[in-house]
């Protein structure tokens, strides 16, 4: 029983991390049909901002965490301004490949400027404690992660429901040029979506750092691949789908670890990707599909 609860919590923590990253991808995708492969590098840059903060002597986690979040948002907006704006109206494939290019550029920049090898970021070591709730030993980090992700998602929902820009982002998922006809600046809507996705990436970076304790240039790659898959499973562009897909993937990961005999551990990926491919063949548009309409996406 104890084991089951522990694994359930594990799955929730993994899932919420994937969901957080997937939400960022879905936000950007929903308004400009861009599969932002460079999202992983936003996470990496947020991570390196923590490394640099410590390097210049900022040691308090209470300062480092906001720096990471701000760095995530800033980098996301910069990517949009520099790389994605020129290809905004291009076909999906062009955007996807641009994002891949950005991802490669930033990874190699980090390699060149900092180091190809992992660097220690020991700022959140406090969090790797175990606390006891009743009879259960629970990782403080996981608990915190669940709470923060819930808060972040809640905040995002409030923003999307009540602020004008939030409404505009939701409206732009289907009717981008009509949003412009409301006098709302397209650039602001897109920049806001990127900033939000960067914020979420920054939060994710904090928890990944807290778990790993170090960072390297390919830091964001693995989580973002997972988040991508979460998006595709959930239905690309659907925010609810991103969360659902992320959670599902978290449970899938843990289930594979728990159920797969030790000696086949290397097949984790093979099994996960087979299931993913199977899901996509079964439902190419994802589980929570955004209904395809003849909107005005060309403009």
């Amino acid at each position: 029983m104890d084991y089951a609860i522990q694994q359930g919590l594990n799955a929730l923590a993994f899932g919420s991390e994937y969901a957080l990253i997937a939400l960022g991808l879905a936000l950007v995708y929903s308004i400009m049909n861009l599969m932002n492969f460079a999202h992983g590098e936003i996470i990496a840059c947020a991570g390196y901002s923590m490394y640099l903060a410590i390097l210049i002597g900022i040691g308090s986690p209470w300062l480092v965490a906001p720096i990471a979040i701000a760095a995530g948002a800033l980098v996301a907006v910069l990517f949009e301004r520099i790389a994605f704006r020129p290809v905004r109206h291009a076909p999906t494939t062009t955007g996807l490949l641009t994002a891949l290019g950005v991802s490669i550029v930033v990874q190699n920049l980090l390699t060149l400027l900092i180091s190809p090898r992992p660097r220690a970021v020991p700022v959140f070591s406090e969090l790797s404690r175990t606390i006891f709730i009743g009879p259960y030993a629970i990782s403080l980090l996981q608990l915190l992660e669940l709470a923060v992700v819930a808060l972040a998602i809640g905040g995002l929902v409030l923003f999307l429901k009540h602020s004008t820009l939030g409404l505009a982002i939701r409206a732009a998922t289907r009717e981008f040029s009509t949003v412009r006809l409301m006098g709302i600046r397209a650039n602001r809507v897109i920049a806001t979506a990127f900033a939000l996705s960067g914020l979420l990436a920054g939060i994710a970076a904090i928890f990944i750092i807290a778990r790993r304790g170090s960072i390297d240039p390919t830091f964001g790659f693995q989580p973002v691949i997972k988040a991508f898959i979460a998006c595709v499973i959930g239905g690309f562009g659907s925010l609810g789908g991103a969360v659902l897909g992320g959670m599902l993937l978290g449970f899938l990961d843990v289930a594979i670890i728990v159920l797969l005999p030790q000696e086949y551990g290397g097949l984790r990926d093979a099994i996960a990707y087979s299931i993913i491919a199977g899901l996509l063949v079964w439902r190419p548009e994802g589980l929570l599909t955004r209904r395809i309409e003849l909107g005005d996406k060309e403009i």
């Binding site: 004008t164 409404l167 939701r170 409206a171 009717e175 409301m182 709302i184």
Partner: peptide, 25 residues
């Protein structure tokens, strides 16, 4: 301003939200 043809309302927003966005500026 221009009102586009046919069904270009923000279908995934409520009527009230549509009107609010209309007044965004």
């Amino acid at each position: 301003t221009m009102t586009p043809e046919g069904r270009h309302v923000f279908a995934n927003l409520t009527v009230a939200e549509n009107l609010r966005l209309g007044a965004a500026i």
